[in-house]
């Protein structure tokens, strides 16, 4: 499947079916993230149930503490 992640077209493996899978794929599952799919912010409890489709526009921002 091909997604547009943070403005870049990215091919992801077939195992990636949900937002939760996508975060795990990028090893972001333990980071504090905000995820938007097609301009809708996904709540954390919806990660496992929000399915991704070919061409979806995904924005991922992860929080860091340093300053």
């Amino acid at each position: 499947m091909t997604l547009v992640i943070n403005g870049e077209t990215v091919a992801v493996p077939d195992e990636v079916k949900t937002v939760g899978d996508l975060l795990a794929h990028f090893r972001l599952e333990n980071k504090l993230c905000i995820v938007e799919v097609n301009v809708r912010i996904i709540q954390k409890h919806e990660y496992g149930t929000t399915a991704l489709c070919d061409g979806d526009r995904v924005e991922i921002v992860h929080f860091v503490g340093g300053g």
Partner: peptide
């Protein structure tokens, strides 16, 4: 990379 998310929602 660059990302931006509207927060009002």
């Amino acid at each position: 990379e660059y990302a931006a998310i509207r927060i009002d929602g």
